[in-house]
Design a protein around this nucleic acid. Structure first.
Length: 882
RNA sequence: GGGCGCGUAGCUCAGCGGGAGAGCACUGCCUUCACACGGCAGGGGUCGCUGGUUCAAUCCCAGCCGCGCCCACCA
């Protein structure tokens, strides 16, 4: 016998182990089943499970479990990401606690330390994924720095380099002075900062009394100015073009150039040009062949290219000093308060510095072209579709991708330099060495490029590198491309776009046919969860308290397309109650000996109630299948919730209680079998969403089942009969019972009081139904007896109306007539306004002419019903009032 | 500045051309032998505003108001 409540902690681990050890998650490359591939977005290896993962993984798990049970050979490919900067920072922080820096250790020892850390904490996230019930093929787990994946990275790098799509270039890059590495455009966040706009006067070199005013938010960069620009059409400065100013403090003569970049509307119309520290100025500098003077070092301190008393100053100290100097020279025109956007590194947390360095770049523009086309012609489709705009927008304006990072943790770039700087890009050191030897004609010592690749470079290869590419062609052949990628919108650029580029370039085919973009999980107030706000909801904690299934079902229910999820604990609690309800329904079935009957055919049922529940299963299954095909997870959850709780528990189990306790052995047997069958269908359909509780019930209810639910086929509901007559009949029954209950409740009939129900103006159909379900109605509506009335009902009756009959409850003893009058009046009022609305429609000639006949007919019918009901209620009101 | 999205019951949100829905919260009744993590019943909404298309608009279109997010930035 099942316990009174479901205790998830006790069964989750048991089933998970059994599934995993039994090989239920494994793909079957040798089978003849059609593959279904989902590539898991690899979480950071040193991370832990947050709510975003929980949602993302749950959705993938639902799809995987569903398709697996529908007969597909499912490969959900798991793994973890080395997360270059993030992981390096964690380890550096740990070292810092002991007062050690990575430079103290040296590169090799440091990387060794990171591997150690990975060994210690690397399984945290995968353990947590197991607790969530995720069912990827763990035997195929990969790590982005595995030998195989590293080999793929080197091969891709070398090939792209040979094709000219990876190259080294000296240009401005976003430099994080805290982490001392280049970062890509995507890793820069613009933040609004209150600052100042300083207006500086630059005296003309040959006419020191004349000045030109330039404005800047960053005065310290003036030490690197190499020009002042004005707009070529700006008459105010026309005579100055070609002249020079004498750069204060520095004493350098720099030209005034004409360039359309200068906006005549802004300030004085003149702008200072610092080509080595500003992206726009860099372009101006290129156009006018200006010198580029780098005035900072890798920590954003002023370098030796500035006057000696500035050397070594931090950029903000230098700023103060520059401003003070201008003030002292009386060259400070004015200072404005100014709110502007400042670029910050998303990891380092300090403003990035545009800095002139040599970096490796990937020609994203060329790679993007086929990736754009693939989405345009639908080979890859985004769900919801509007994310395609976001994708296109970015891809069409894509900039060269800076792929080198000055870090130690990651894939070291496979490039070696000869003594004269000649670069040899090869997959191995040996290959580079022999290339160098033949280049120089003698054995030559090489030094390897110290940089590592952007973490996203290896992630971009994930859809094929994890399959064993460039080896294992049969795996690639079978499981590439993937069916669907499930991910959040925040990594469309970082990851999705780059997988598209790399997949198309190297596999000649898109990496996945669908990209399902889900929402962000926020806290109950709609705020982004963050450590600093302290509003993080820990999925593990929720699993501990409510069970994995409750959390999963909550996330699925809230995963509507196009809106962020506001997660509250209350919600999880509510769905935990649903799990308990399901548990208790199963317990009830068990107590009533409703056990699955081998070979039971639901189509063979004879009782209306049984035919109805079977029909409802069919409808529910169809809705669930449709919802999942469209990635409408919330719809699937809602349909199942509704069916399991309201149709099955609230009505079906109540309807069938008298039968189970009755003395008709055939009816009892049929109902038991049907009850067990219907419960099984609920378990079968709910299983991909809530695998643990359904598995536990599946096993508990029938000990001799050979297979676990996880590997039981999804039933074919197509052959299930849908009995419209039975459905109509039970719907009628539900309405009748509800109406009587409403009257009882509103008339304050004491719960214990059994009253008679009289039915007036019953049609033959109604009489027959009353005949068949009389006992049931009496029981569920708590009636003493039930009779069909031919005379006027007695005074003091409460009345209600069913489409084809009037229900009369003679309540002379207990009824409050005033209350009844009020109730009737209100009902009549509602009906009147509905009738008026329909009348207006029906008197509209346009409507009659243009609306489909079915719609018109429907309106007529609805009016007829409303009028009939209204009349009978009015009659009742008159009698009550008399 | 460009793009995307959202404004529907007290809260969180489904629905998206022809009768306003769910969960939670709330009110009343019920400890009925599966379940009080329960049952039954109920209250509560000019579906942001203004126009337009349509016989018909919460649903389609335009504008406006309010709120988010993303991208790019003018010194």
């Amino acid at each position: 016998m099942l316990d009174k409540t479901y205790r998830p902690a006790e069964v989750e681990a048991k089933h998970y182990t059994s599934w995993e050890e039994g090989g239920a998650f494994g793909c079957s490359p040798d089978s003849n089943r059609r593959p279904f591939t989902v590539m898991m977005p690899p979480p950071n290896v040193t991370g832990s499970l947050h709510m975003g993962h929980a949602l993302n993984m749950t959705l993938q798990d639902v799809l995987t479990r569903y398709e697996r049970r529908r007969g597909r050979d499912a490969l959900w490919q798991p793994g973890t990401d080395h997360a270059g900067i993030a992981t390096q920072m964690v380890v550096e922080r740990q070292l810092a606690a002991d007062g050690v820096s990575r430079h103290d250790l040296g590169r090799d020892a440091f990387v060794e330390k990171v591997w150690e850390w990975k060994g210690e904490s690397g399984d945290t996230i995968t353990r947590q994924l197991r607790r969530l019930g995720a069912s990827p093929d763990w035997s195929r787990e990969r790590f982005t720095m595995d030998d195989g994946l590293s080999k793929a990275v080197r091969k891709v790098f070398v090939q792209l380099h040979k094709e000219g799509l990876i190259y080294k270039d000296k240009r401005l890059v976003n430099w994080d002075p805290k982490l001392r590495t280049a970062i890509s455009d995507l890793e820069v966040e613009q933040k609004e900062v209150k600052g100042h706009l300083w207006h500086l006067r630059y005296p003309l070199a040959d006419d020191p009394d004349r000045h030109i005013v330039v404005a800047t938010t960053r005065p310290e960069t003036m030490l690197g100015d190499t020009a002042v620009a004005v707009h070529p059409d700006d008459e105010r400065h026309a005579d100055l073009i070609g002249k020079e100013v004498l750069l204060p403090i520095v004493g350098r003569r720099i030209p005034i150039v004409a360039d359309e970049y200068a906006d005549p509307e802004q300030g004085s119309g003149a702008v200072k040009i610092t080509p080595a520290h500003d992206f726009n100025d860099f372009e101006v500098g290129r156009r006018h062949d200006l010198p580029m003077i780098n005035v900072m070092d890798d920590q954003a301190r002023m370098n030796e290219n500035v006057p000696s008393d500035y050397v070594g100053l931090d950029r903000y100290e230098a700023r103060k000093k520059v401003v003070a100097a201008f003030e002292a020279l009386d060259l400070l025109d004015q200072i404005e308060d100014y709110i502007h956007m400042v670029p910050y590194g998303d990891r380092g947390g300090v403003p990035v510095e545009p800095w002139l360095t040599d970096q490796w770049y990937c020609d994203a523009k060329t790679l993007a072209k086929p990736a754009i086309e693939a989405v345009e012609d639908g080979r890859t489709e985004f769900v919801p579709k509007n994310w395609e705009n976001t994708y296109f927008e970015w891809m069409r304006n894509i900039q060269p991708w800076c792929i080198s990072r000055q870090l130690w943790w990651g894939h070291q770039i496979p490039a070696w330099y000869g003594p004269d700087g000649t670069v040899f890009v090869e997959e191995t050191e040996e290959a580079a060495q022999s290339a160098a030897d033949s280049h120089y004609g003698k054995p030559t010592e090489l030094t390897r490029d110290p940089d590592v690749l952007d973490t996203w470079f290896s992630s971009a290869l994930w859809p094929f590198s994890t399959l064993g590419w460039p080896d294992a062609p049969e795996m690639v052949q079978r499981y590439y491309p993937g069916d669907v990628l499930v991910t959040g919108f925040d990594i469309i650029f970082f990851w999705v776009a780059r997988m598209m580029m790399m997949g198309l370039h190297f596999m000649d085919e898109v990496p996945f046919h669908k990209v399902y973009i889900h929402a962000l999980v926020r806290d109950a107030k709609g705020q982004k969860m963050s450590k600093s706000k302290g509003n993080i909801i820990d999925p593990l904690e929720l699993i501990d308290r409510f069970g994995s299934d409750s959390l999963r079902f909550t996330l699925i229910s809230m995963a509507a397309q196009g809106r962020d999820i506001k997660l509250s604990e209350q919600r999880v609690e509510g769905y935990r109650n649903f799990i308990t309800k399901l548990w208790n329904a199963a317990r009830y079935c068990q107590m009533n000996e409703c056990v699955p009957v081998d070979g039971f055919n639901p189509n063979s049922a004879t009782l209306a109630t049984n035919r109805w529940i079977a029909s409802s299963v069919k409808q529910t299954a169809a809705a669930v299948e449709r919802a999942l095909a469209d990635y409408r997870f919330n719809e699937a959850a809602s349909v199942l919730y509704q069916f399991a709780w309201h149709s099955f528990c609230d009505w079906y189990l109540e309807f069938t209680k008298p039968i189970l306790n009755g003395d008709d052995p055939e009816a009892t047997a049929e109902t038991r079998a049907m009850t067990a069958w219907a419960l099984d269908q609920i378990l079968l359909m709910l299983n991909p969403l809530t695998p643990f509780v359904t598995e536990e019930l599946w096993r508990s209810l029938s000990a001799d089942r050979e297979a676990e639910l996880i590997s039981t086929d999804w039933p074919d509901y197509g052959s299930l009969a849908e009995d419209k007559t039975a459905v109509a009949e039970i719907d009628w029954l539900v309405r009748l019972i509800s109406q009587v209950r409403t009257i009882r409740s509103e008339m304050n009939v004491p719960a214990g009081a059994k009253i008679p129900l009289q039915v007036k103006e019953a049609s033959a159909e109604t009489e027959s139904r009353l005949e068949r379900h009389g006992d049931l109605i009496k029981r569920m509506a708590r009636l003493s007896h039930l009779e069909i009335l031919s005379d006027e009902p007695p005074r003091g009756s409460a009345q209600s109306v069913l489409d084809e009959a009037t229900l009369v409850l003679p309540l002379a003893e207990v009824i409050d007539l005033d209350q009844e009058r009020q109730r009737l009046q209100k009902e009549i009022g509602k009906l009147d306004s509905e009738i008026a609305k329909i009348d207006k429609k029906l008197s509209n000639e346009q409507f009659l002419a243009k609306a489909p006949d079915a719609v018109v007919e429907e309106q007529r019918e609805r009016r007829g019903e409303a009028v009939a009901v209204r009349d009978r209620l009015a009659e009742a009101l008159a009698r009550v009032s008399a």
